Simulated assay, not measured.
Amino acid sequence: MPACRFKPLLAEWRLVLSLDPDQAEDNKDGEMEYMLLTDILGIEDYMGDMDFKIAGTRRGVTALQADVKLKHGISLKIVMEAIQRGFEGKAVVLGIMNQTIVRPRSEKKGNWPVSEEIAVPIHKRSRFLGPGGLHLKSLTAETGVQVFPVDESKYCLFAPSQVAMDEGKEMIEKWLVEEREPQLEFGSICNAKITEVRESGVMLSLHPAMTPVWLLLRVVHPSALGLEVGHEIAVKYFGRDPVSGQ
């Protein structure tokens, strides 16, 4: 999912606390000799007694992280010094960044990841997902576009580039395109064709462009009423189900 966007430039600074091994084990009152090193190569992180990271803008902090390996913790003095050193280092990095770019680019590059929300009517959800999610699997395999549900009728598309997003949306449009559905009047009587017969009822098609619906027969088997595939029966239309969309 897309992350939060900040208008000011952001930078991170990393520090490592280093103590004498004997002092780190024995000292419990927080008074100890120490060194704060800039973590550049990674070996300091492995050998150090605390890994400290600070990120933010010139005006403040957006994230802090500290991995303390000492049994008895660290003193407030070390914490405050680490934050101060982090602010100073962060300011240096931001100064270098400002020499290259002052503000975020207004236009995205063609290879930047992009995201977009699309609305899918509930009654078209089965066409969008495909049998067993087959459409979504093929969408990711062919274009790299991933789909995340937002709510009942909205989905978020995440693509590795704008080109991939355009290809993915074209595939989705083909799945969702359909013949224009007739606007049936609530309570009207219309003819429906039986497309499938089961013990519990029959599947009815009101129109080729509409999703077939089940007519449950709780008393008798459809064959007892002479109902067969291809027969047409008169039904009363009461609108779509608010949950399934059928």
Rank of each mutant, 00 (worst) to 15 (best):
V219R: 10
R5G: 01
S205A: 11
L217G: 00
M210F: 02
I96Q: 10
V177L: 03
D241A: 08
F238H: 09
K7P: 00
V16S: 15
V163G: 05
G201P: 05
Q183E: 14
M50K: 11
V197D: 00
E81T: 07
D166V: 15
D20I: 02
I96L: 14
Q183M: 13
G132K: 02
G187S: 04
D67C: 05
A66I: 06
I96H: 06
S205I: 01
R14M: 05
E167G: 01
S106F: 05
I118W: 13
L36I: 14
W112F: 13
V163Y: 05
K193E: 14
A159N: 03
A141W: 00
T100Q: 09
A141F: 01
G168V: 06
F6H: 14
C4I: 11
P8V: 12
E107D: 10
V220E: 06
Y34G: 04
A82M: 10
V16R: 05
I54C: 04
R127Q: 13
L10R: 07
T100N: 07
H231F: 09
P212T: 07
H221N: 04
A119E: 15
A192K: 09
Y46I: 11
E44K: 06
V220C: 12
H123E: 08
P222I: 14
G60N: 09
K236V: 04
N98A: 04
L37A: 01
P242I: 14
M47L: 15
T143H: 11
K53I: 15
H231Q: 15
K77R: 15
P208V: 13
M165W: 04
R198F: 15
P21V: 09
H72W: 15
P182S: 06
I194R: 06
L36Y: 03
